[in-house]
Amino acid sequence: MPACLLCHRSTEPKISLPWILSWQPLQQPVVCQACWETFTPIFSSQACIGCGRAQTQRSLCHDCQRWAPMAFDNRALFTYNEAMQAYFEQYKFKGDYRLRQVFRAVLTAKLVSIQADFIVPIPVTPDTMITRGFNQVTGWLNDGENLSWLRTTDAAKPIPQSHKTRQDRLLTAQPFELSPDAPDLRTKTVLLIDDVYTTGRTIRHAAILILENGAKSVIGITLAR
């Protein structure tokens, strides 16, 4: 019996007459209904247009008003709540790579709906690659590899972002650079993908770098906000 990846209880597949008649293989859910409902989705009609945070109307939230305006906006899929925190603890910090399956389907479905010339996942440092063994963003998208023309500089991340205060995070220096084999970005739209948007510092650094290299606009997609 397959078990839910999050609570390890066995999941009963729903067997219905239409499914039997469809003659298709059984689609197993990777998480059970109860676990899935602990995550809160964000609807774009009720989210900040700058960072994707859930709010009552579609406007710029007070955090986004403080950022210098640029051709970047972020969209988030879920609110960063306790369940999401627990998920990231298990997936990213404990390194349970199986959990990439939990959000793979929703994230790929979201990507298909957005028009962009390049899809770029935020990279992790080589040190993280040695200890964690995978890039949490590309884990959802394809193979967990860390190969991208956007890469971290050697000086990046002596302290992980998650160990810093908000002030320290906002003061972080540019951690990214473009590799020599980067394509011509002029007049192109780039889709950046990251795991969590907290202060927005990391993804905005990446967006600034790409915009400086001539891109027309940058769209951010993060799993959580």
Binding site: K94, G95, D96, Y97, R98, I130, T131, G133, F134, N135, D143, G144, E145, N146
Partner: peptide
């Protein structure tokens, strides 16, 4: 399976991950 032909143990991961790394 982990990327780059590495593997990890998902059975005892709560005690810290055992992997080929």
């Amino acid at each position: 399976q982990l990327p780059r032909h590495q593997f990890y143990c998902y059975a005892c991961i709560t005690l810290g991950r055992v992997s080929t790394l």
